[in-house]
Design a protein around this nucleic acid. Structure first.
Lengths: 321, 321
DNA sequence: CATAGATTTGTAAACGCTTACAAGATTCCA
DNA sequence: TGGAATCTTGTAAGCGTTTACAAATCTATG
């Protein structure tokens, strides 16, 4: 039983009874092929499990490179960004582009030319962002920045839902473990809004600060608690922070969720402990980014889109005792 | 000034005054082209800055896929593995292969066929490893496992050098912050050997355990110190652990390196603090893995290779007061 | 010095896809 | 109902490599 030959466009064409040119058009071109023909082609594609060869497609000149820039560089090493990267790769490939990682010069110039750019993780007041906006209208930001194309998860909404969840469980001393930057700020806003809507006074001392990673979160929570701060609910601005917070609380002899309920944000896979958290649809964000990129390259006026987000309740939250 | 056209093999051929076939052979085939011709071709290649098109090469059937399997999956999210991945990608590409990430089934079967496999991070007693060894002789492990091809950094040597460095700075109470698994064990052995060679008695209570990440390291060090354990030098089994340890020591009111000297392992880039550490040459490991893979596919008897490692002294270590 | 054998080179056919172009089929209107 | 205008389709020429195969050139030997 020899290795199954991978089906090519010719196999599809033969099975569908059309020419390869037609198959190609059916697959790529938005128009110019009769609906019933396209239907037949699609059936053949499915029956054969045909998937176009990236190499051939690229050789034939159809794939353009889009540059993904990560800034600051270190963010590349966080799970969230890795997942986003993978999702972008997939989404771009699906639209006939290929992802190339391009470094950003200190002045904010892409170090390699590309048909378009996707910028990841820039600080909102980073001057390089402004520069990108002006010099490269064919770029989209994953984040928020007016005047350019951007996609972002519904951070305020998610934070609101997380906080609301804690409030509805009866918690009144709800702390927030936050981080700097646009994202951190928006998640904080959602937290604060929920407090307001539920008539719980906002107490600034209840907002702790760390970075988006575990260790700073651990330290912030532990220091605060040892300093006498008390709360029965905690909304952490990321899953990693939530993990750090839980470790700290446990080291202090507390039980999660018995003594303190903790909510995270992101819903990262493979965590050491199942978290109540706000789920981001990373693939959806990637798809939206690519869709916007196509708009951007066709000189449409810039706009931003929010991708929905969803609370998922697991076992780090419980009703207040 | 139009976009510079990317030079193709034809340009090289013309400039060198030979045919494209010859250029191709000069570039790829080990033999079958006259030395002076090859020389001329190489000059043309350099002058033009020619780099072969991956797509074309792949289409023409020269590139085979090699599967990289990461196990357990979560390791994919650590900086070390990301760097290793990138290095492997580069090294494979250089040899005309392309990297595809292939998941490993629970039983230890690659979920996609490939011309060869590179296994990353498996526990040394993982039964799936044994299975790979038997059913897929065309695979190499990054790690140590007798009976199959493997590459690994010189962990014992590096650990020895790190510990030696501390000892030569006059430290006598040298602790070790270790981790489980083959790698952890080897680094521990290096530590212990250095102690012996320098006539410093080995004290089991001085070896702390954590995982390879910051938070467990922080907790282990803090708990130990609070429990009364004292040391003036610490060899951590990874840079991330070193960072965690330093944070813990500082939270305890100690100064690094003034009160305690800390050495890491890996030499990760972009760290928040420059560490005295043991540098791994990740690109060299990747190259070695690929070289071994070629051996493995030609049915050579399995062997392992160690890649050298180097102590780099920065400012987290100081002479004992 | 002729010639068999070995070595080096050129030629051209793939690889799987896209797309300009031309041809064929369909629609629409006078 | 004829023909122009519009849609849909097939044909074939690339895209940049590799590699069988054949041709040309060398080397060695008698």
């Amino acid at each position: 039983m020899g290795r199954k030959r991978i089906p090519t466009i010719h196999d599809v064409a033969r099975l569908a009874g059309v020419s390869t040119g037609t198959v190609s058009r059916a697959l790529n071109a938005r128009s110019g092929v009769h609906p019933v023909t396209r239907q037949r082609v699609m059936e053949a594609v499915n029956k054969l499990g045909y998937v176009p060869s990236v190499a051939a497609r690229e050789l034939a000149g159809r794939t353009e490179a889009v540059g993904v820039m990560v800034t600051p560089r270190v963010w590349k090493y966080s799970p969230y960004f890795i997942l986003l990267f993978e999702a972008l790769d997939e989404a771009l490939w699906h639209e006939g582009y290929k992802l190339v990682e391009v470094p950003m010069s200190p002045s904010g110039e892409p170090l390699q030319p590309a048909a378009g750019y996707i910028v990841l993780g820039a600080h909102d007041h980073d001057p390089r962002l402004e520069r990108m906006r002006q010099k490269h209208p064919n770029s989209v930001l994953v984040g928020v920045h007016s005047g350019m194309f951007w996609v972002a998860p519904d951070d305020p909404g998610g934070a609101y839902a997380a906080t609301q969840h804690l409030l509805e469980l009866g918690h009144r001393d709800v702390a927030h473990l936050g981080a700097a930057g646009q994202v951190g700020r928006e998640r904080f806003e959602g937290y604060r809004q929920a407090l307001t809507d539920y008539g719980v006074p906002y107490r600034p001392e209840l907002v702790l600060n760390g970075a988006f990673t575990t260790l700073p979160a651990y330290r912030a929570v532990r220091r605060a608690w040892e300093g006498g701060l008390r709360f029965s609910g905690l909304f952490a601005a990321s899953d990693e922070m939530a993990l750090g917070a839980i470790a700290a609380l446990e080291d202090l002899g507390l039980n999660v969720p018995h003594d303190v309920s903790v909510v995270g944000f992101d819903d990262l896979p493979d965590l050491e402990r199942p978290l109540t958290t706000v789920r981001q649809e990373i693939p959806a964000i990637a798809k939206a980014a690519v869709a916007l990129l196509k708009e951007a390259t066709s000189h449409a006026p810039p706009r931003g889109v929010r991708v929905g987000v969803q609370l998922v309740v697991r076992d780090t939250t419980a009703r207040r005792r």
